[in-house]
Design a protein around this nucleic acid. Structure first.
Lengths: 343, 343
DNA sequence: CATAGTATCGTAAACGTTTACGGGGTGCAT
DNA sequence: ATGCACCCCGTAAACGTTTACGATACTATG
């Protein structure tokens, strides 16, 4: 099966009518539409995407940009795959397909994104891991391509975004630890360039201030958000002259390495050191001791992202009249054993 | 900047020459080529992908299909993101872009793939998580679209594939455990529909036979390849009337849940029960006790996949004359503490 | 000087699809 | 009989590229 032309010849109908029949246009006899659909199914005809999008100037594809290079919470493990479920459930309602665009680690994310949008391979974009100032947002705003970001940024203005409540999480964690008697609380956070790192740390500092605890820069551990980073974080904690009694992790799997390093030194997490992790829960509870954590639904987050994006697309915005509001996504505390002791 | 026409007008050159200049064709003056490239850069012109691929019948895009639904080793954690690095490093040499196509969990993978290839949105495909018989392979063979699979299958014939050495891994693990005195060895494996599950189990059985150990079906634990599954595996192990002294896991992170369940029962992994995991190593070594595991480089695997795929594409095959051979990827044992005791 | 060869460029067709436009038929009311 | 509305369908022009082909000017060769 080559193209719509062959299909039309086979049916002995004009090519225009065939196209209209396939696209559900009204001015076509129901009987002929039936014939066309049957023949298309039989011959396995599917419209060539290039021809279609060239003509109508739209690709019906939404891009989800993925940065495997950046050392953030999002890039680790199956974060993105968790999102796609929710994203696709919404996009499928409008015959939109989702593709993931992994930025090569040796290419500048900004350049990569520019290339992708210039080639007009997607109708809209979802980007994440926003930097504190992020050129990508300016780029997308300037080129007028609809987009939504997962994460706020100082760049741009009045663009749709969704963000996790890093501020709330940091505050909640500190409150909880202070209530248990802790005063010396360490925190692991990614670089401040990553906006979530900045916000997370900012929430931590404001919480300390509320409790009248002075901020000690030496308690901020800058390591990668991985098992390896967790191990290193443990190492650095042990080296501190005045050892903290609690630590807040930006990423749950860091706990594996942290636990390991602590155990090696004879320090028992959940007894000698309180640990609170971030994000996800079903896996954190299998750690030993079970990690106190914050839960969120990646699927729901995906749904929200998709609806916010569609609200920003003129062709679909009427479906989501109230979806245009940027919002901060709350997280729910899941108590574990890793901080279940009083000082 | 609209299209190549505007760019040509701006330069007062014909549209054909501009196109040739941009695409590096030989019959264009170097001076004018310089001017064209400069103007394109200045005005930010990038060729519209739809127009280009419509004309030349090629999209310069390679698709990597992702099944978030299937409960396999591949879908867990950052397996695919690990692959993309190696894949892109090769594809970039030929100006090919990689996109990831996540199959919605509520759509039949076969239908999804059919839709994607029929729309001609990619030039070639990479699929993984091959089933024991996999309709997708027949589909791709029939439509003559170049492809490579990660994983063998009984379907199709003479198609290029790369697979991990599940047979070798299972044999090696059993050998190692038997050498330590174990005779009653449990194994966790995914469904036999997933070909790797079948091969893994087959290797396990043949190894047992070599050592004269009878195969006991009750020692085959069918759980999900996740922390949750690991916990459940531990639970089922404890319920067995004649408890095994060792267990082989198909996926390393299962060890987290397994450890947890064992600890709860007062069974110490690495002392009361030997554990060997599969795949990856940098994270396994932070577990407590460190997991004996098999190491592989996802990046190298990606490179190999890309080269095997390109060898199957007529336009690129001459670059990779010896890349057409399907091969089984070896893995390297990384001894840990989880099986470091004699019975 | 004539001719062949070469370097460079312009012209126009083609890729597969959608869609604005118009035309033929039918039914109904005037 | 005429006009009108309506349903259905065919025609052809776009969409933005690439590329085969031919045209032009210049160089080298005899």
């Amino acid at each position: 099966m080559k193209g719509i032309r062959q299909l039309a010849e086979h049916l002995d109908i004009s090519i225009g009518t065939v196209s209209r029949a396939l696209n559900g246009k009204p001015d076509v006899n129901e009987e002929t539409r039936r014939r066309v659909l049957a023949a298309a199914e039989e011959l396995g005809y599917v419209a060539n995407q290039s021809g279609r999008s060239l003509r109508q100037g739209t690709t019906n594809v939404i891009g989800l940009m993925i940065e495997s290079s950046k050392e953030t919470v999002e890039n680790s493990d199956n974060f993105f795959l968790g999102l796609t479920g929710g994203l696709q459930s919404v996009l499928a309602r409008h015959q939109l397909d989702l593709i993931m665009l992994p930025c090569p680690s040796d290419e500048d994310p900004h350049e990569y994104l520019k290339r992708m949008v210039a080639r007009r391979v997607v109708d809209a974009m979802i980007i994440s891991a926003t930097q504190r100032t992020d050129k990508r947002i300016d780029l997308l705003s300037k080129t007028k391509i609809p987009f939504v970001t997962l994460g706020r940024s100082l760049s741009g203005s009045n663009y749709p975004w969704i963000d996790l409540d890093f501020d709330g999480v940091a505050n909640c964690a500190v409150d909880r630890l202070v209530a248990q008697g802790h005063r010396r609380i360490a925190i692991s956070a990614p670089s401040n360039d990553i906006n979530l790192g900045f916000i997370f740390l900012d929430g931590y500092r404001s919480a300390l201030k509320r409790h009248g605890i002075p901020f000690d820069p030496s308690l901020v551990i800058r390591v990668k958000s991985s098992e390896q980073g967790g191990y290193q974080a443990g190492h650095e904690l042990l080296l501190l002259k005045e050892r903290p009694t609690a630590v807040i992790l930006i990423y749950e799997l860091m706990a594996i390495g942290l636990y390991r390093r602590l155990m090696e030194a004879g320090v028992i997490p959940g007894r000698d050191l309180a640990v609170i992790g971030f994000r996800e829960e079903p896996r954190a509870k299998f750690l030993q001791p079970a990690l106190t954590c914050f839960r969120m639904s990646l699927r729901d987050l995906g749904v929200d992202l998709a609806e916010t994006l569609l609200a920003a697309m003129p062709a679909y915005s009427h479906f989501y009249p109230d979806g245009a509001r940027s919002k901060i996504w709350p997280l729910e505390l899941v108590p574990g054993e890793s901080d279940a002791f009083r000082l």
